[in-house]
């Protein structure tokens, strides 16, 4: 089931004048997975989503959703895709129920199906008691949950969420994430999430793509991302050993691949081109050094975060 490609993006490019919002994007999304499109603001995430829905035309390239061309066959695409924009706008002088009913009618559903779905969905997003209140009186979290009910009215195969947790309090974020998880695991829908809040979203994603300045830097399961993002850079190891004497520098220099050794505040910082941990441990233990601490630097999600995301929110 998971190897069935449902969204296929080929060389997708969008330019606004001289500015390239999305640059030559290639991406496949498999049926049933939760894919997180992560990147700082202005990276081109929303533009990519808009192109998937045919709400803006790509300068170059193709996006296929369930086999339909997203630019030319927008109606077919919109029939199976539920899209929740980052600032979802309801008709504020209509009640939650009326808003959902309107969307149901636009999707060509019959009266009975609409009423049945409204009831079921309002219960699911815990808004049953306020369903007859005007949406203008809803809190942001409630609107966002109504948004989920809204996209579920058409029973979509694919759900696209743009910054679903933005502006929610911690409780709201948790509720939202639980709801998204449920949509994936229980209903088995394909979910594409865009967000700049990496830490919130990473927990629920099967795979993520890191998107910076219009380019997809890396994609894959979250554990392997660090390797990919930093593959061109030297590996950095931090170790602490006992005893820390002068002999150790010579010993370490003899290991193949190590390019630089520094001793800072009792820690040895080693840079290398390739994986040296195995040799390192072997050499040190043969010479009776006790390794108290060993950590690879700069290959973790936190490092990706601090490099691309921090300070840009």
């Amino acid at each position: 089931m998971k190897d069935n490609i449902i969204i296929k993006i080929r060389e997708l490019t969008k330019k606004y004048g001289d500015f390239t919002a999305v640059n030559n994007l290639n991406l496949e999304i498999y049926e049933g997975e939760v894919f997180g499109l992560l990147g700082p603001n202005g990276a081109g995430k929303t533009t990519t989503l808009l192109m998937l829905l045919g709400l803006t035309e790509p300068t170059k390239g193709v996006a296929e959703v369930n086999g339909y061309d997203a630019t030319k066959e927008t109606l077919q695409v919109k029939r199976i895709v539920g899209y929740l924009p980052d600032h979802v706008g309801f008709y504020e002088d209509m009640t939650g129920r009326e808003n959902l009913r309107f969307i149901g009618q636009l999707n060509g559903l019959d009266h009975y199906t609409i009423e049945e779905r409204i009831e079921r969905l309002l219960e699911r997003v815990k808004l049953l008691d306020v369903g007859d209140k005007k949406v203008g009186a809803y809190s942001r979290g409630m609107k966002q949950r109504l948004g989920i009910a809204d996209i579920l009215m058409k029973e979509p195969k694919i759900i696209i969420l743009d910054e679903p947790t933005l502006g929610l309090d911690p409780e709201g974020v948790k509720e939202m994430l639980d709801l998204i998880m449920e949509l994936s695991k229980k209903d088995n829908r394909t979910i594409l999430i865009s967000s700049h809040l990496l830490h919130q979203i990473q927990k629920i994603c099967d795979r993520v793509g890191i998107f910076v300045k219009g380019n997809l830097l890396a994609k894959g399961p979250i554990e392997t991302l660090g390797e990919k993002v930093f593959s061109d850079e030297p590996l950095t190891l931090e170790i602490e050993i006992l005893p820390l004497d002068d002999r150790v520098k010579k010993l370490l220099n003899s290991i193949n691949g190590i390019t630089d050794i520094k001793i800072i505040e009792g820690k040895i910082i080693i840079q290398s081109h390739e994986e040296v941990r195995k040799d390192l441990v072997k050499v040190l233990s043969q010479n009776d050094y006790e390794i108290r601490y060993l950590k690879q630097r700069g290959r973790e999600l936190d490092d990706i975060y601090s490099r691309y995301f921090a300070g840009k929110e």
Binding site: Q76, G82, P85, V88, G89, E92, I103, L106
Partner: peptide
């Protein structure tokens, strides 16, 4: 109000 993109995401 943001309702246009919601409307446009429907098959109309």
């Amino acid at each position: 109000r943001g309702s246009l993109s919601r409307l446009m995401a429907q098959p109309i």
